[in-house]
């Protein structure tokens, strides 16, 4: 367990805080899955991580951008569909860490269309899986100060855990 528990939040969440967190989660999930599903996945996805980032893919751990590369380089092509997501600013962190959870479906490879002839219509293999993914997004303290008006901070994925759940 963490040696220093976070101090109780002294500043209550404001509506604006919640809206910013929601927009960040919205933008992040779009960026992340677009990158994952793209042909340039291997160069795009690691940019969202830092060396300290911890990942778990269906029970197998990876570390940092290099871990991301080893995780996805032999992963079949994907198509993700976000069906539900939610996001919390984490109490006691400022600027807040964001906990984002996503529920959706993911099709790998050619999907059901790539199943061999003779595959029963009752065979579920090749069809979309349900996935559940949790991200911890945290501000990058080493990033240069924001250069754009309105930009609060640059965030990266500090933790990422995925399971196929259906």
């Amino acid at each position: 367990m963490s040696a220093n528990p976070p101090a109780p939040a002294t500043v209550p969440l404001t509506t604006a805080d919640i809206e910013i967190a929601t927009r960040a989660a919205d933008a992040f999930t779009r960026i992340y899955y677009a990158a994952y599903d793209s042909t340039s996945r291997l160069s795009e996805l690691p940019k969202l991580y830092r060396p300290s980032s911890a990942l778990v893919w269906n029970g197998t751990p990876f570390q940092g951008p290099e871990g991301v590369v080893s995780m996805v380089q032999s992963m079949p092509p994907t198509k993700h569909e976000i069906q539900s997501f939610d996001c919390h600013p984490i109490p006691g962190t400022s600027p807040p860490s964001l906990l984002v959870i996503v529920s959706g479906s993911v099709t790998h490879g050619l999907g059901a269309a790539g199943n061999p002839s003779g595959t029963s219509s009752k065979n579920k293999e090749g069809h979309p899986r349900v996935f559940s993914q949790t991200f911890m997004l945290v501000p990058d303290s080493e990033a240069p100060p924001p250069s754009k008006a309105g930009e609060l901070a640059k965030y990266f994925v500090s933790a990422d855990a995925l399971r196929f759940v259906g």
Binding site: A24, T39, K148, K154
Partner: peptide, 14 residues
Amino acid sequence: PVTKIAFDVAQVDP
């Protein structure tokens, strides 16, 4: 300006 959190945006563009 729109207040927002940024990411190292993956420009999906070959």
